[in-house]
Amino acid sequence: MNSKTRTELLYVVVVLVVLMAAAGLNIVYVLGHESNIATAKDPSTVPAGSTVINVTGYQWAWQFTYPNGTSSTDVLWVHVNTEYTFQVISKDVIHDLLIPALGLQVYAVPGHPNQVSFSVNKVGSYIFECVEYCGEDHYLMRGTMEVLS
């Protein structure tokens, strides 16, 4: 083994170690947060005690329907430190709901409901938006999440 090969192997090993460490951290995160990752809707996997909010995406607005039957468009009302579960569906084309402050992202696909759980630990007002291009007024498919105490 000449010095060239040795240098190269050393480099590959270092890269491998860094990437495997990163991949391992990622696996640990994913396995600990299954309910926080968008999955196909399944009532049996909704965490116990979680409030279900039905989310409907359509060209070009988000509608949130709460358990008591009321609904709001382009504004989401939630309470702090409460576990919520979104069940997300689209009426027309594919949308993608992103709440950047929570790192919560879920596709709204017609005929394929998804669900994702979250809770907020800080009172305030945060933005959400559609991040999958969906036609003319895609950029207006956005709103604010109001977190109440």
Partner: peptide
């Protein structure tokens, strides 16, 4: 990273 992807995808 799935955790970064959820923030930054799209």
């Amino acid at each position: 990273n799935q955790s970064v992807n959820e923030i930054a995808h799209g």
